[in-house]
Write a protein that binds this DNA or RNA. Structure first.
Lengths: 185, 185
DNA sequence: GTCTATAATTTGATAGAC
DNA sequence: GTCTATCAAATTATAGAC
């Protein structure tokens, strides 16, 4: 693994626990076995590192989601699939969504980081909207599908927050089970 | 207004924008017109200040909510009332819920702050559960009412997050409108 | 790519005078 | 209650050698 990649991994780990201010160049450097000054070779400023972090997280997350159209063709429920990705982030990693944390502290972030965080949310809403449109066909409209997408993403981010603070993965299950009545409006 | 109160107000303002690390004793001192060292007279450590911040926020929020039983007696919808308090926090203050931000970075908080943040969530869930039980009477059970409470609080925290990051209060309206099908299961 | 050395700033905190 | 003075540590960042 390249040093650059190792730095991003270490930063992601810390940021998903305490946000943008929860990692420093020195800590990351120590973890990957180089000196703090050398981190600046890979990322000129902390803002650059933070932006790359949110960008990479978004790319990986959307890539793991796959194409919503394909899912519908295989007659899989894309919403259930989508919820599963968040469940995995919470249960397997025992951490918040990186962009959920960045989103909450959005107004305090350097501009480039904020923009990439915003992109995560826009792209996820688009993914969900498309999935809902494909699944429901003539039973929905673009506006209704987008509203449902906003609803689902809000609920997932919020239920991850509650699961973390109450230290209970069951909270996530409880909140997400109640998606169904909306999902099958 | 006492200096102590002014310090808490200044801290709350900053914390609701960028979390626990987004305020320092020096900044708070400057804003209320005293020196950094004097802040330690009011709050020995930053952890003490943070804990008091979450505690005061929780007290104020629950006090503003009032008694759910009273609301039901006046045949007001307690859920609508509850959503209105979050709407106000978002629209009037243009900020996240303090405990929402603290909740997201929960695992990085000093212990006392974390405990008071957790208490905010537990007390809000209790309030909602009681409100739902009173309103629905024999149509619900304690478990079902609590699950609904978890769902509503998750959705509200998440939709505040999305509203902040997408810089759109409409997002909050969209997400919360879709509470109704669950509310009237 | 990584290092040493270093700068400038900020931070939480303490001691002791008034 | 507030001040001055001070501290130790941490932070982001740069210059320049290897």
């Amino acid at each position: 693994m390249s040093k650059r990649e190792a730095l991003l991994n270490a930063a992601e780990h810390k940021a998903r626990i305490g946000g943008y201010s929860n990692f420093s160049f020195r800590e990351l450097a120590n973890e990957v076995g180089i000196k703090s000054a050398s981190v600046h070779y890979h990322f000129p400023t902390k803002e650059d590192l933070g932006a790359e972090l949110a960008k990479r997280y978004t790319e990986n997350f959307l890539s793991a989601l796959g194409d919503p159209e394909e899912l519908v063709k295989l007659s899989q429920d894309p919403i259930e699939h989508y919820v599963g990705k968040f469940r995995h982030a919470l249960i397997a990693d025992q951490k918040m969504c990186l962009c959920g944390l960045f989103g909450a502290e959005s107004d305090a972030l350097p501009n480039k980081v904020k923009l990439h965080t915003k992109a995560f949310f826009l792209k996820n809403i688009q993914w969900l909207q498309k999935a809902i449109e494909k699944r429901e066909g003539a039973n929905t409209t673009p506006v209704k599908a987008r509203n449902k997408a906003v609803f689902i993403l809000s609920l997932l981010q919020g239920s991850m927050m509650l699961s973390k603070v109450l230290d209970s993965n069951e909270i996530f299950s409880i909140a997400t089970t109640l998606i169904e009545p909306i999902n099958n409006h």
